[in-house]
Every structure is written in structure tokens, then in C-alpha cells.
Design a protein around this nucleic acid. Sequence first.
DNA 1: CGCAGTTTTGATTCATCTCAATTTGTGTGG
DNA 2: CCACACAAATTGAGATGAATCAAAACTGCG
Lengths: 248, 248
Amino acid sequence: MHTNLDNQNPSQQVTPGLLGARCRDCSLQELCLPLGLSQEEMERVDELVSQRKRAGRGEALYHSEDLFDAIYSVRHGFFRTDVLLEDGHSYITGFYMTGEIIGMDGISTGKYSCSAVALEDSEVCVIPYQRLETLACEVRSLQQHIHRIMSREIVRDQSMMLLLGSMSSGERLAAFLLNLSERFDARGHSPVNFHLRMTREEIGRYLGLKIETISRTFTRFQEEGLMEVRHKHVRLLDVPRLRHLIRQ
Amino acid sequence: MHTNLDNQNPSQQVTPGLLGARCRDCSLQELCLPLGLSQEEMERVDELVSQRKRAGRGEALYHSEDLFDAIYSVRHGFFRTDVLLEDGHSYITGFYMTGEIIGMDGISTGKYSCSAVALEDSEVCVIPYQRLETLACEVRSLQQHIHRIMSREIVRDQSMMLLLGSMSSGERLAAFLLNLSERFDARGHSPVNFHLRMTREEIGRYLGLKIETISRTFTRFQEEGLMEVRHKHVRLLDVPRLRHLIRQ
DNA sequence: CGCAGTTTTGATTCATCTCAATTTGTGTGG
DNA sequence: CCACACAAATTGAGATGAATCAAAACTGCG
């Protein structure tokens, strides 16, 4: 019943909904948009979320200033969102893994305020925003969940403000690693043994530190026996002590 | 028709809806929740927003961890929201003036994640959240506006992340002053001549700087002819150059 | 008028940035 | 498969901006 009416970027590879690519069958239900919906409600969301979009490594899902028409949920892969400044510098506002929602910053002005770039070959579910809003009016629990997701983003950003405003480099990196650890854990991956998808430079742009400081702090953490890090592979050796470093 | 059924904090002074205290008569319409609503829709919001709540200087509207049940729109006065840390320190996540909405951080977990403290004797409109959600299901433009307000908060927090992550003390203070200036301007006050409601220490906790740094930066700005500051009174003398300082 | 709280100013310390060089890793094409 | 070039990461030395510690000046309130 759902034709491809939705505004879609023709330059991007888009696949229509496939069997097995439905919310009701998706392993990310518990993390993603349909969280807490009944079977019937989920089917209605399924009608909405009928498109996938791929982005190869380094490719952008959308750019800052693009017309906002959809939010995206990460099906697989890894994204960063970053804001470009006039002087050529840029900073990273977030990293997103499977089940997480990208693009809500665009709602307020009708244009995305940042660009979403894939850190590895990735795929997202396209959630057309107009239709989502319509459905949210009818499905109360969906509306509530959308509000919770947006509010969660606000709280997340505010804890980032704490980090950037008052933490040392060590505290920042520890907080960053523990946050990744929890999110991998929630997805059934090892919380102590994982691959960093981002470069040191990207970590730095996210944490408000220079690449050299990131590198030195990794080295220090290793010397102190807190972790092992080899290239992009990380093994957390002393989570309690890492937690103690940031004491919250 | 609106009785005082809403969950309200009995320790706070609450006044029922008064003639002249309705959204449809309120001078803040253009800034506040009812923005963009039709006359009829506004009347429905009015039924919802029937309570006011006062908070004297230094008093909290709510505390971190309190049960979330309402968001608030500032009728008059000035608020800050802050997060207390275990070690006794705290940081400020935002300042709020008339027409601005406080408390959306509570939606995600059902508890407020910060405390809202009045910087001067203030009054807010109480917007019971359950009922707002119900009404938003029926009034599409209200739902859209709520989403825009939340998204705006996300964008605002992200520009704060830029400030905290990559700006010098001078850039931070200039950005802070210009932001206040714009908000006063939008409310019909002078954009170059205004009173700071907050202490230097509070500015510091907001900008991620120590009070001494705030003070020194004010002094420097004065020496450079950018502004005059005497106690809490500020006069911006060279807005273009202040803007140039932050170059966006 | 005096006292507590706030703000300013000064001297010093310290963490991170900057600049620079080196090492290591990655991808490409011969 | 190796060599090459380029990108990413590490390490070191020195510069710098903000924090810290300390004291003085100012303000406003009772």
C-alpha cells in the first residue's frame, strides 16, 4: 500500500521495505523507535518506515542546511554528526550506533543543523517526519516515545555540557569510553572489548581536546593499567577505576 | 470550568487562572507555547494552563530528581537550571527569561534532571504534562510546536557544546552577552543596555570558567571599548566587534 | 555603620595547546 | 608481494591561557 511517494534523496541508494526488514522482526525493537508499542501499533509504524538508505564509509546521510524531511534510525553501522564552522574547523555533536535516532535537530528550523557521516558502511531506516507526526497524533504511546527520545537527547547533550565545561582530559576520555561500553553492552556486545570506529582526531573533536592530548591520555591510561589500546581496538581492564575517575 | 485538580506542589504558592492571565491576552504569545495557534486552539490551551506558580528569589520551582509532572513557561522573572554533582560542585545548564519553557529534560525519565531556581521574584505558568500530551494529540499544530521547542533546545545545547568545547574565555563571554542581547531584543527591551540577573559566579558555572576569569574578561572587554559594565548593568558599545570575536 | 557576600586584582602553577619530528599504519599500483 | 605515498598516531619540548591561591576593594543589607 505504501508507494514511494516520500521525498527521498535520489543520489542515495534506497531500498524498499523487504521481508525481514520490518520493525516487528527487527532485533533493535527494544532500542529503537517502536519501543513499547503493541503489535498492532508496530505494524502501523512499519507502514511508515518502509525505506532503507545506505551510506558508505565517509559518506553523508544528509548535510547541514539540507531540507529536513526525515529522521533516521541506524540499522547497522556507525555515524557521527558534525557541525562545520566558517573557519573550516568543525566539531562533533554525537556518535550514533544501531537503534539510535539521528536528525532530530532539524525539526526546529526545517533544516538539519549538522551533517551525519557514516564511519563505516552503514544502513538506516528512513522515518518520514510528516507522516511520523501524523501517526503520533493517533498512536498515543508513539507520541510519548518520541517525546522521550527527544528529551533523552536533551539530557544527553546536557551531560556533554558538564563534560566539556568542567572535566579534565582524563575524565573526558574515561566518560567517553564508559559511555561507549554501556551502549555496546546494551546491544549484546562486550562492554570491555570493542573497536573504536572513530579516529583519535574525531574523538578529540567530540571531547573538545586536541589529537595529541587524546593520544597521550590513552598512553597514560595504559601505563596505569586502566586499559589496553592497540590501534582501534580497546580493552577496558579496570572499569571500576575508570568510573571512579569521573565519580558519576 | 477548570478546577484545581492538577498535581501541584502544596509548598508553593499557586494562583488559579485569572482574567488577564490567559494565553489569548498574554503579551508573550509570540514567544511562548501558543505560538502559531488559532484563536480556538489557544482557548483550549488556556483551559490547560490555568495555574500560576510563584518563586521568590533563590527559590526552586522544582528540584533535580523530583517527579516530573509539568513543564513551565516563564511569565515574568528569570530562572537558571542547574545540576548538582556529588562532590558539591554544580553547573548551570541554562538561563530562562519570559516566554521560555523550562523542564523538558524531565520527560525522558519522569524525573527532572536539574533544579530550576529563580534569580529574582518570578512567576510561571504551570503546564501539566499529561494533559498537554493529550491535547497535542488533538491539536496538530500544538504537537508540531512542542516538537519544535524541544528540537530548539537540542540545537541550543549543541551550540553550547561548541562554546564549551572550543571557545576561549573571551569568545565564551562575548557569545553569552550577544545571546542575552538578542533575547532581550526579542522581548522589546534594549539589546545593548540591560541588567544581568545572575552573579559572576553563575556566569562562570554556565560558561565553564572560574569567577576570576569572568571578572578579568569583563575588565578586558571594558579596556578594549567593547562594553561598559558596572555591577550588574551592562552596556554593549561595539556589537559588531563582539560578533566578530566569535565570528558566527 | 559594620559585616557578609561579591567582585576585582595580583602572583604563581598547571593542564592543555602548539609546533615539530618520528613512527606506524593503510591503501594503491606496478 | 613489495614499494611507495599518504594518513593516522605517538612522542617531545616549549608556549600559553585559565585555574588556583591570596588579598584587597567594593556593595548592599540589616
